[in-house]
Amino acid sequence: MRLEYPSNVKIVRVPCTGKVDVSHLLRAMQQGADGAYCVGCLEGTCHYNEGNLRCRERVEHVRNLLEEVGLEGDRVRMYNLSSGEGPTFAAYAKEMTEHIKELGANPLSQKQKAAA
């Protein structure tokens, strides 16, 4: 399956989305990422029972924190798919990239560039 997805998406592999912490997502935004999203297994199929559900809750929390800070919460999202759904993975990458393009660049990265 030689699928294409946007080259701007950088993948960070974790054993389970339950490993993703609020601070990981916040740090990504702090360091200038325009957006971040977690791709977990389908709900109800987690090998660790509720790793992907915990991730979803953390993503929701981060969205609220970003709004408090003054950034768009929708820069962070959660997606679910099964490991056999390569085309869906590529489709989500495309969807997220287009969504972030609509929102524009992370204002923090612009300020960092201006300061440099």
């Binding site: 916040l26 740090r27 950034l71």
Partner: peptide, 17 residues
């Protein structure tokens, strides 16, 4: 962990302002 989260938030919010 909560110290890290708060510091990250404050850093971002103050930079934005």
């Amino acid at each position: 962990k909560e110290v890290t989260v708060l510091n990250t938030e404050l850093d971002m919010a103050r930079k934005l302002k």
